[in-house]
Design a protein around this nucleic acid. Structure first.
Lengths: 133, 133
DNA sequence: GTAATTGCAAAAATTTTGCCTCATA
DNA sequence: TATGAGGCAAAATTTTTGCAATTAC
């Protein structure tokens, strides 16, 4: 059995979540720190990191991009998508480009859309064997 | 006029590109360093970084994920996609989920596909004004 | 009261830069 | 031979960790 450890709603945690839900941008840890510091001047950056991590684990916030991402390089410059193993982090190529369509008119976003990238997530053959769903 | 600066094909650059095209994985800079080191034992990690950067700029290799990505957090846990400005890096929400379809049968990848993420790239209203295409 | 959490400082991990030497074109 | 590029070491940047003090429950 896993000893269930309670989580306490500290002022720091509450305010970090509160601010993150309020703002429309997608701040980095450092930016969250600067925002929260206006309400808790003595908060430390490591508290921000720890709480962002915990809130994301609990599904109360989400992370953009890939967890612990370091830049990866690809010698194949043909257009192709990737699939990333959610267990071991391995990245493989997907040979055929999927199609992306949307019904909504995105023009009022004000963005000029240039391209899009699709990344799949799944369990690779090895990890699927070890941890069957 | 921009003084065109020539690029030289050094042994280091040639071998980095060669190895990156050979392997099917998508190594980090550090992993490229370890691979290339078998052929050029005295190469330095900074040379690897510099060349990966240059090769990517020249379009001879590509980078997975976002350039200079730091982890970003989002207080909105509704499923939604994002669009990232290719000029200033700002990330905005896209309200309606686009649809992804594919014709190919991906089952022989051996992956159990769990989800996929679509990220759009474009010019945000501000940057589109400054640098019209 | 107990143990989860904080703040601080130091360490770890990743990437970039300065500078002098080397070697490609 | 001129200058782009490399090697090395140091700096910069981002994230994690150890620990004593604090605080939510």
């Amino acid at each position: 059995l896993v000893p269930k450890t309670q989580t306490r709603l500290t002022k720091q945690r509450r305010i970090i979540l509160d601010e993150l839900c309020r703002i429309k941008t997608h701040p980095t840890a450092d930016e969250v720190y600067e925002i929260v510091r206006k309400r808790i001047p003595r908060i430390s950056l490591s508290t921000v990191y720890r709480n962002l991590e915990m809130l994301a684990e609990q599904g109360k916030i989400s992370k953009l991009g890939i967890d612990n991402e370091r830049m990866r390089f690809d010698g194949n410059i043909q257009e192709h998508s990737h699939i990333r193993c959610i267990i071991c982090g391995k990245v493989d190529d997907i040979p055929i480009e999927p199609k992306v369509t949307w019904d909504e008119d995105y023009s009022d976003l004000g963005y000029e859309i240039v391209s899009c990238n699709i990344e799949f997530f799944g369990k690779c053959p090895e990890c699927g064997k070890i941890e069957p769903s």
